[in-house]
Computed example of a mutant assay.
Amino acid sequence: MTFYEQLLQATEPDRNALLSLPLITRGAAGELSLEAYVAFLTQAYHHVKHTIPLLMSTGGRLEERYEWLRVATGEYIEEEMGHQEWVLNDIEACGFDKEKVRHGKPGLATELMVSYAYDMVNRVNPIGFFGMVLVLEGTSTAVASHAAKAISQSLNLPASCFSYLASHGALDVEHTQFYEEIVNKISDEKDQQLLMHAAKVFYKLYADIFLDLGEQFMVRA
């Protein structure tokens, strides 16, 4: 069994718990209000905008033995440039004020997930950041494209409202393959265990964002 397979196996319960949350299942079924969808995009903006700074910090703090991973991190940076603006453009296409979102504050759950990511990279071990990559890209691959289509049909919204979700559903399939390749090169057992731990924590923190949104918009199982 490869390390990537071990990672998926170890985090499967956490992934299933996230994907079974009411906001995600109802989103995939096209049962969200416009306000709930925009609220999701708002929280997405407030963590997506940190992707590049976090990747840069990760690359800078990797040990010399991980030079190959630093190169791979540079490729991720190129791929992720400007994605936060996609989110803002979707918000505007839905008829909401993207500048208000840009200059607003994240919800507490979002703020805590971002804070944990920076703490992991800068204080603990930058390898742990790839636990966040597993959670965010794996979730996108699983539900993003389907949810975009379902919400678009139920709310009668144009494709311009779904550039973030629609693109990430397809894009993250390629990213997942790339992720699998680099994760399988991590052979240090301590780093492997740390990555597993970080991924499980990020699943919990990301789930908290959807739980908060679910409570706000009265989404119930």
Rank of each mutant, 00 (worst) to 15 (best):
L157I: 04
V48H: 00
G128M: 13
N125M: 12
H50Q: 10
Y164N: 09
P158F: 06
A36C: 11
E64C: 09
F162D: 03
L112H: 13
V87D: 00
S160E: 14
H146E: 13
D119E: 13
S152W: 02
A148E: 02
E111V: 04
E99M: 14
M132T: 12
V71S: 08
E111T: 05
T25L: 03
G95C: 10
E80H: 07
S154P: 03
E63R: 09
L34V: 03
S154F: 03
L55D: 10
G74L: 06
G169Q: 06
Q84E: 14
E137L: 08
V124C: 11
G138W: 04
G30I: 01
P22V: 01
I77C: 08
E79G: 13
L157H: 03
I151Y: 00
I24L: 14
Q43H: 07
T58E: 07
I91P: 04
I52E: 05
A93H: 07
T73W: 00
L32C: 05
A148C: 06
P53S: 09
P126I: 00
F96R: 15
P158A: 07
G59H: 04
E75D: 12
D119V: 03
E79D: 15
E78M: 12
L88M: 14
V121Y: 05
H50L: 01
Y66L: 13
L41F: 00
L155A: 08
A109S: 15
L55M: 09
F96H: 15
L32W: 03
L108G: 09
S160Q: 13
V135L: 09
G104C: 11
M56R: 10
T58Y: 01
E111P: 03
S57V: 05
L54P: 13
T51I: 11
Y76T: 15
I24W: 05
A93V: 08
L69S: 08
Y116C: 00
E31C: 02
H103F: 14
E80G: 15
R65S: 07
P106H: 04
E78D: 11
V121F: 06
T51R: 02
I127H: 08
I77H: 00
L41Q: 04
V114P: 08
E35P: 04
N89D: 14
G60K: 11
H47T: 00
S57D: 15
E79C: 09
T42D: 00
V38C: 06
E80M: 11
M132Q: 12
A150E: 07
V135G: 06
L34W: 02
C94L: 11
L62K: 09
L134T: 14
V114M: 04
K98E: 06
I52V: 15
H47A: 03
R102W: 04
W68K: 09
F96K: 15
A29Y: 06
F129D: 10
V143N: 04
Y164D: 04
N125R: 15
T25C: 03
V48G: 01
P22N: 00
K149T: 14
E35F: 02
I151A: 04
N89G: 08
G128R: 12
I151Q: 02
V135Y: 09
M132W: 13
L23M: 06
L62V: 06
V124M: 09
A72K: 15
A142R: 13
S154Q: 05
G60W: 02
E111K: 10
L108I: 10
F130T: 10
V143H: 05
G95Y: 02
